[in-house]
Design a protein around this nucleic acid. Structure first.
Length: 153
DNA sequence: GCCAACGTTGGC
DNA sequence: GCCAACGTTGGC
């Protein structure tokens, strides 16, 4: 089992949105970055843990835990001309973009802010706290996973 | 294959 | 809103 961190802008899709879905799950569509795609297509497996991260907001940080429910499959929004995620180079026969299904697990009582994560030397190896990291899906080590869960009590 | 121009991300 | 960092595009 592996661990991940997935970023989302809460104005677009927040952990509360995930929790209030009828089945508390959501296809993680719209990722248009090759590194992130490769992880979703090739590496993420059902049962893997996900830190749910809010970006571009008042207090950016980890707000809870989700779980991979379904491994990578083609992101159909990529061949829908009506979608804002449309990519003319993607088609059902030759899908360019992939997504996973994500399920709600828990919301932390308080956001573990990026500022807090940056301040902890134990987490200095995380890609998240490295300067200029823009990946919306990134792996989390088992040590960091458990350490951060400890912060959340 | 290089690299300048351009677009996007995301913290601040 | 600014801007640094980084990814993508496309001319050559």
């Amino acid at each position: 089992m592996k661990y991940w961190l997935m970023k989302t802008e809460p104005d677009v899709f927040s952990i509360d949105d995930l929790a209030s879905r009828p089945d508390q799950s959501e296809p993680w569509d719209g990722v248009r970055n090759y590194q992130a795609r490769n992880m979703m297509r090739d590496e993420m497996k059902p049962g893997d843990g996900i830190f749910f991260y809010h970006s571009n907001c008042d207090v950016p940080g980890i707000v809870g835990v989700a779980r991979v429910l379904r491994e990578g499959y083609p992101d159909h929004t990529s061949w829908n001309p009506e979608s804002k995620y449309y990519d003319p180079k993607s088609s059902p026969d030759n899908p360019r973009w992939f997504m996973v299904d994500v399920g709600f697990e828990r919301k932390f009582s308080e956001t573990i802010s990026l500022q807090c994560l940056r301040s902890l030397s134990e987490l200095s190896e995380m890609p998240l706290v490295r300067k200029g990291n823009r990946l919306s899906v990134m792996p989390v080590g088992e040590y960091e996973w458990n350490f951060i869960l400890g912060l959340a009590q």
